[in-house]
Amino acid sequence: MVKKAGGAPGLGPLSRLRRVEGVAWRVIGEEAVLVNVRSDEVMHLNSAASFLWSSLDGRASLEEIALSMTGQYDVDADTALSDSVAFASELVEQGAAEVVEPG
């Protein structure tokens, strides 16, 4: 079951998200450009945001993604996790990602 984008869910370390199908995207260098054809918006993501976005496959939890982020970036696990949860909430609010409910 998928919680549709548009709300502001209480995301946590175990939350799993996936990219919404209506969003076209491309990684350019280390950054990403997203085009949401439903909301007529173009989004530019910096390097860490692009890493997180690319990892939203609906299977990995935010905690797992944050942990892999610590291997790529000079950041500690706690900071990576809190930043990842905050940014994931932004993506859901923008309608670019949706929460995959367990079960």
Binding site: E30, V35, D40, E41, V42, M43, H44, L45, N46, S47, A48, A49, F51, L52, G71, Q72, Y73, D74, V75, T79, A80, D83, S84, A86, F87, E90, L91, Q94
Partner: peptide
């Protein structure tokens, strides 16, 4: 310095532009 080959970290951020 134990950062090894890891990249400099910047908090994940996005900028949003509305399509005309």
């Amino acid at each position: 310095d134990d950062s090894g080959d890891r990249k400099a970290y910047e908090k994940p951020q996005m900028s949003v532009m509305r399509i005309n």
